[in-house]
Design a protein around this nucleic acid. Structure first.
Lengths: 127, 127
DNA sequence: CAGTATCCTTGGAGATACTG
DNA sequence: CAGTATCTCCAAGGATACTG
């Protein structure tokens, strides 16, 4: 159907943006910014709250999200430096969708774990 | 708030499943299976339709999705081999959410491209 | 504090060839 | 056809140290 921007077509910008928004770090950063209820978060807050992310990946992730127009970056010219990150309108919409999906996965975690157990059991008996 | 299953906590099963479902290949495979309107798709169909995926990654992706209970795998004992993939109830729900998000990105592609252009322009003039 | 810069390692991912 | 096995390589990503 759609040809321009079709996410199933490689080398399509849609796919790149989708990967930023749904990637392992991008999705979590968007989620955390949404949790704040449209407020702002600082670099170090995100670093702490998104468990496992390194400084490098956080910086890189935020840059990609900012470039895509999902995140707004506000620099305060003070010492020590202070930079606030927040969601744009686009980012808020994306974050809501992702957050919903993640919430649904959490809610259904028992079903997922059961599926995994069953899969593993089936594989075990075939050996 | 939530501790067990919290996606923001590393080493949490939720995050692993989320990554399978929203990862660059997983998301596209789920999307393609949904496009088929609850029908089935064969390995080679998916290979063709998800532009850029290799056999290895498709096999690996399908296995992860099957293990998580998102995809059902039906083997027909015929020659030549025939294997049908379809969405489970869980998979259908996940696929719908992802598909919606991707559709929204496609629709708003102009906004994203504009944001990127603006970002690049701002960076260029600062040099 | 909010990043860069650097180095280094792991494994994600492709290509190819083979099998039931 | 639907995979698996193997080899290979590049880039994603982590750790550390440094700077405005």
């Amino acid at each position: 159907m759609v040809v321009r921007g079709d996410v199933y077509d490689r080398n399509c910008p849609t796919r790149v943006i989708a990967n930023h928004a749904t990637g392992q770090w991008g999705s979590l950063v968007l989620g955390k910014l949404l949790d704040d209820g449209g407020g702002t978060k600082r670099f170090s807050e995100l670093r702490r709250e998104v468990s496992g992310i390194s400084e490098k990946m956080l910086a890189q992730t935020l840059q990609a999200l900012e470039r895509d127009g999902l995140v707004h970056r506000e620099v305060h010219p003070v010492i020590p430096p202070r930079v606030d990150y927040s969601l744009t309108a686009l980012g808020t919409h994306a974050a809501k969708q992702i957050s919903e999906l993640f919430g649904w996965i959490e809610e259904n975690l028992p079903s997922f774990m059961a599926a995994q157990d069953e899969y593993d059991a089936r594989r075990a008996e075939k050996v």
